[in-house]
């Protein structure tokens, strides 16, 4: 696959390197330093950084503004966009706004339901869904058209991605659903956090059987766990999360003060194992409010330094 956009992430992937991405959650306030500090910690260890869009429906600084800050710092941001809060006018408009700052990556999502957040009494929009947002960005980029049919002057040049959860229900449509996202226009996929490596490998095999690995880059999602408590919480409380008992037990088996290190070790071992899986094109390391650990994970897995691409 050759790169079609100026996205650094796409160029790294197109050159055949294992890509590394990470994510930063914008602050619940307007302090620009928060995002800059997080970005500073990880910028030499990743190819691109996702900025979440009001994740779990908690009102935060907007993803677009935070992406612009990263871009001005010289990073390659991935603009996450959920279809929960904006209709097709606002989504297209924000895509153009991002493109005006040469933000070259977008991740299309539906977003958590607003009932999880701080505005549970609010409306949701869902004018289009995540697949239709993929189609929209591709239409804007490839055909230079708005949804309304008019031409766009200086169309956005965006590498278009989507999320996939290999562990969500029902399992039988996980791969058909991925195929659907690919046909809607997804060029890269960042997966849900993987703890059940066997099931992930099964999913990868099923997607390879359909040849999807040749059509889309899969970035395996990983989140190091800080404690056995976090492992148990993710297992029980987070929808669509598959944390096997072995992982919880392994975390619980070490003393509390060493659990964080154990979580990092588990993450590093998972990356080492998944590197060998055909079709895995890179890793999406989501160290939630633990960005300072990203360099260690990247170094220990031999993914540092990041390749230079022009």
């Amino acid at each position: 696959m050759t790169a079609k956009t100026p996205s650094r992430l796409e160029k790294v992937l197109a050159a055949g390197h294992l890509a590394v991405t990470s994510e930063c959650g914008p602050p619940r306030g307007s302090d620009p330093e928060v995002i800059a500090k997080k970005a500073e910690m990880i910028k030499d260890y990743v190819d691109a950084v996702n900025i979440t869009d009001n994740q779990t429906s908690m009102t935060r600084m907007c993803s677009l503004a935070a992406c612009i800050r990263l871009k001005l710092m010289g990073l390659d941001p991935v603009l996450q966009m959920v279809t929960r809060d904006r209709n097709r006018i606002a989504l297209q408009s924000d895509i153009l706004g991002a493109a005006s700052f040469d933000i070259h990556n977008v991740l299309c999502l539906s977003g958590d339901h607003q009932s999880f957040g701080d505005c549970a009494n609010g409306q949701n929009v869902h004018d289009i869904d995540s697949m239709q947002l993929l189609q929209t960005v591709r239409l804007m980029r490839d055909d230079g058209k708005f949804l309304g049919g008019d031409d766009i002057k200086r169309p956005p040049q965006m590498f278009v991605g989507a999320a996939a959860n290999p562990f969500a229900d029902p399992f039988e449509i996980r791969v058909p659903r991925l195929a659907k996202k690919v046909s809607a226009g997804a060029e890269f996929i960042q997966t849900q956090c993987i703890y059940n490596l066997d099931k992930f490998e099964l999913w990868m095999k099923m997607m390879r059987d359909r040849g999807l690995h040749e059509k889309v880059y899969i970035l395996a999602g990983l989140t190091p766990m800080k404690s056995a408590g976090m492992a148990r919480y993710m297992k029980k409380r987070v929808p669509g999360m598959d944390v096997p008992d072995e992982v919880v037990d392994r975390m619980a088996a070490v003393p509390k003060e060493q659990q964080a290190q154990e979580g990092i070790d588990i993450c590093v071992e998972a990356i080492e194992r998944l590197k060998e899986v055909e079709g895995v094109a890179g890793f999406h390391v989501m160290a939630i409010e633990w960005e300072e650990k990203v360099p260690e994970i990247v170094e220990r897995t031999g993914l540092h330094p990041r390749p230079a691409v022009d």
Binding site: D112, S115, H126, A163, D169, P239, G240
Partner: peptide, 20 residues
């Protein structure tokens, strides 16, 4: 669908139930 998604389900579908 709580998100009226036309190409679903979303990632929040668990054991046949909605994330909400």
């Amino acid at each position: 669908c709580a998100k009226r998604i036309l190409n679903g389900p979303c990632g929040g579908s668990t054991t046949g139930n909605c994330e909400i």
